[in-house]
Design a protein around this nucleic acid. Structure first.
Lengths: 132, 132, 132, 132
DNA sequence: GTGGTCTAGACCACG
DNA sequence: GTGGTCTAGACCACG
């Protein structure tokens, strides 16, 4: 469940952050669910507690999880707001170099869009209009 | 033309790599065009020559540019082959965390696809079938 | 009456301390009123008895409440003395980082003062001269 | 300039964060100024580089400073926007317990307001209306 | 038992 | 030389 890729270039704490986000989006982790303690998770993935701690801190700052002192760490209630322009600009900036390389390597729009759709489906992303 | 963003989080050498790729995709740089020398470019963008050198090395490894000793560095002829599975897998891996955050922040598929299409258009990416 | 915020960053025992102080300032708790026992309160707010106990100890040390062995815990008579310089220095030290961030975020003095006045009013703080 | 209080209850990294904010507000540190490196500062205040690093990271996330890889860390340009309601609510929440204790100890509104004004003056906070 | 803070010290990417 | 990441391990506040 919390398995990481390991051999990757991505820092461990960043992998943990991503993994937890994924699991909440996929519904595997639901609001109120207890996460493993820092020490438990660090044992599971064979990493230093500090590294996991850093990931948890980042997740807390992003509002994905919340720490109840002495009780543990829990998945936070998701507060859904419309994404603001700064967030969108940031996402487009991060999308850009991926598209640059895709185009460079001759990937066609159709195929790239299929990848996007698959990813959205896998994550339960909304495809229609705002829920108004 | 080679201006960079400067205060971004992306390493300078990586910004140079992306910029050159973009310029070739957009047709601003064409096969056979001469690039500035490492020293010229490092002066232009106020960076360390080592940094530019590293970018050129990476671009050469990717086949984007080629060095003709004693003559300079030139945009390479683009050899278009179908992208192999390793490249596609890598691109999807890089796309994934962007989609995770997009879904997390409530961006809808329609909007994300629009971003993708815009990026493809801007880069002259092919939308149809292989030219085969 | 003793409900806490729960998911806040403030330790539970500290929340209890503040809450009791507030209730006495607001006049909801008056001198001589009996407080719930440690066990009762810990049940009410779903916390560890040790936690409540720690809060009561701190409140007793500050002279807010007093324990009469075998009888329970009671709101103490408020002995109003002029605050000494040590207390004032401490309060200013605690005020300081709040003002730093307020200024940093562009809050104007007028608005900040309005917050202060509202808080004083809500707590029945004296605005005039010492009662001498 | 970067001297800390030392004996305080506040974590070292938090003291560094506050100190840098203060220095920028007071104009001692100006946009573009270079901060000491993590290792320099950690030597100055006799703390671990990691601790200083944590402070710098927090300052960067808040937009107070920015890191230019390989060049060092610099005071960021201040982008002044009107503080939003979330920030204000947070500041009032932090102000509240200070006022509670002030009222409890019999500090009068007049005096407390004087403290606030002094702090604003010292930090160069604006007292008038928005600059439009 | 829970996470938060800190130290000491290593290795690495970037410039 | 610069900061970023990580490990190993200690101490502490909170519950």
């Amino acid at each position: 469940m919390f398995r990481l890729d390991g051999r990757q270039n991505v820092p461990i704490y960043e992998q943990v952050v991503r993994r937890v986000k994924e699991l909440t989006l996929r519904g595997v982790l639901k609001p109120g669910d207890k996460l493993p303690t820092v020490r438990e998770l660090s044992a599971m993935i064979v990493a230093n507690p500090n590294t996991v701690s850093k990931a948890y801190q980042e997740l807390e700052r992003s509002g994905v999880i919340e720490t109840r002192p002495g009780k543990g760490t829990f998945v936070a209630e998701r507060i859904r707001v419309e994404p603001d322009e700064r967030i969108k600009a940031d996402l487009r900036e991060r999308l850009w170099p991926v598209v640059v390389d895709a185009v460079y390597f001759g990937v066609r729009l159709k195929e790239f869009e299929a990848w996007v759709r698959e990813a959205f489906n896998e994550l339960g992303g909304e495809s229609g209009e705002p829920k108004a």
